[in-house]
Deep mutational scan, measured.
Amino acid sequence: MASDGVVVEIGKVTGSVGTTVEIPVYFRGVPSKGIANCDFVFRYDPNVLEIIGIDPGDIIVDPNPTKSFDTAIYPDRKIIVFLFAEDSGTGAYAITKDGVFAKIRATVKSSAPGYITFDEVGGFADNDLVEQKVSFIDGGVNVGNATPTKGATPTNTATPTK
């Protein structure tokens, strides 16, 4: 695992066909100046998982989280898009600690492993708008004895992609 920078880890949970599971997305290594904004994309298989919603985690402190935390689910493109932009203008609602960034709610549709993997990152910046190093650890849903650990090695991303 990367020793510096922010680590975004997609949790690994267990479920069975027809059940709804909650998959946490963790941030670790949050910089001392916090995270003022970030955007990134995960990939998944809508034939295996139906993403039914995404909720902000406990490290989102904006009293009205829909102003700073936004997501979009595109089953036709097989992606989930995340956007966080601190909304106070003063840094008061920045992410300042490690913990759960988001909770992905999904219904298991198939007995195949439900991988959720890193696809791309736009950027991560602290309260001074300084770009942060970030790496990703894939996860998803274990169905029966299947284990979604494909790509469990962190993917280092030093520069934003478009």
Rank of each mutant, 00 (worst) to 15 (best):
A36S: 02
G53F: 06
T159L: 11
S135H: 06
K103E: 06
Y26V: 04
I51D: 10
G99R: 13
K78N: 03
I104Y: 14
D62G: 12
Q132T: 09
V6H: 08
V13I: 11
I104T: 11
K133Q: 06
G114M: 06
R43W: 02
S32T: 10
T155M: 11
D128F: 05
F40C: 02
L129G: 01
T90K: 05
N127L: 02
A158V: 10
G122S: 00
T147N: 12
A2G: 04
P113W: 04
D62M: 15
K133P: 05
N127R: 03
K133I: 06
F101D: 04
M1I: 13
K109G: 08
V21S: 06
V134R: 03
T153E: 12
L49D: 02
K12I: 12
V130R: 14
V30G: 05
A152T: 11
G5P: 05
V30S: 14
G89K: 00
F27H: 10
N142L: 12
T147D: 14
V7M: 15
G99I: 09
P154F: 10
T20C: 11
E120P: 00
K78E: 15
P63W: 12
L49Q: 15
S3I: 05
D76A: 04
F82T: 01
K103N: 07
G139P: 02
I59T: 13
D39H: 00
P46N: 08
D98R: 14
A112F: 03
F42L: 07
I51H: 06
I60R: 15
A112Q: 11
D45Q: 04
Y93V: 14
T157E: 13
P56G: 10
K78P: 01
K133H: 12
S68A: 14
T117Y: 08
P63S: 13
G53S: 06
V141Q: 13
F84S: 03
G5N: 07
R43I: 15
G89R: 01
F124N: 00
K12E: 06
F124L: 02
G139I: 02
V134A: 08
D55K: 08
I59L: 07
G122K: 00
R43D: 05
E50I: 03
G57D: 06
V143M: 08
V61P: 09
D87Y: 15
R28K: 11
F84H: 02
P160D: 12
I95P: 09
I52F: 07
